[in-house]
């Protein structure tokens, strides 16, 4: 029961064992566990970031939708305004065109009336001459009484 040279052997064994375990177990294992810890932390951070980004994206989307709605309303309003304008313009054009047509028609009617009057007048002269010549038979000479007849026709 005493300390013997076994001590030296055990010390060498101990030193080798410490070196071996440090190299093949402690080193790789702590390295792996640290890596894993870091990976988990990174993953959690990424998830957190993802949630945050999603929130931002949702806000952005809502903003976009709001803007789009506003734009659509604006465009609609403009279109309606433009439509009203076009209708008004069309009404004005139509009115002007109508008036023009009416005026043209009136002028034509007047022309036609005048022409008719002329024709009628000429025919009345002819008819009158015919009638008069029939009444007075040969007594009236167209040439001699032309002056008178013209006067009569003018009065019609």
């Amino acid at each position: 029961m005493s300390i013997t040279a076994t001590l030296i052997g055990q010390m060498i064994t101990f030193a080798i064992l410490v070196w071996f375990i440090g190299k093949y177990l402690w080193g790789p294992m702590t390295q792996m566990m640290d890596d894993r810890k870091k990976r988990i932390a990174d993953g959690l951070a990424a998830a957190e970031r993802g949630v945050h980004e999603q929130e931002l994206a949702e806000q952005k989307a809502a903003q976009h939708i709001k803007e789009a709605k506003e734009q659509a309303a604006e465009i609609l309003a403009q279109a309606q305004k433009r439509g009203v304008e076009i209708v008004e313009d069309a009404k004005d054009d139509a009115k002007a065109e109508g008036e023009r047509l009416i005026t043209a028609a009136n002028a034509e009617i007047e022309q036609e009336v005048n022409r008719a009057k002329e024709t009628l007048r000429a025919q009345v002269v002819d008819i009158t001459i015919a009638a008069a010549s029939k009444i007075v038979k040969k007594e009236i000479d167209a040439k001699a009484h032309g002056e008178l007849l013209k006067d009569v026709v003018g009065q019609i």
């Binding site: 064994t13 080798i16 064992l17 071996f20 375990i21 177990l25 790789p28 294992m29 792996m32 894993r36």
Partner: peptide
């Protein structure tokens, strides 16, 4: 026993996965 430990350390150190 040191050999047992070395064996465990070596095999585990080689085949461990995170």
């Amino acid at each position: 026993l040191a050999g047992v430990l070395m064996y465990i350390a070596y095999t585990m150190g080689k085949k461990m996965t995170p």
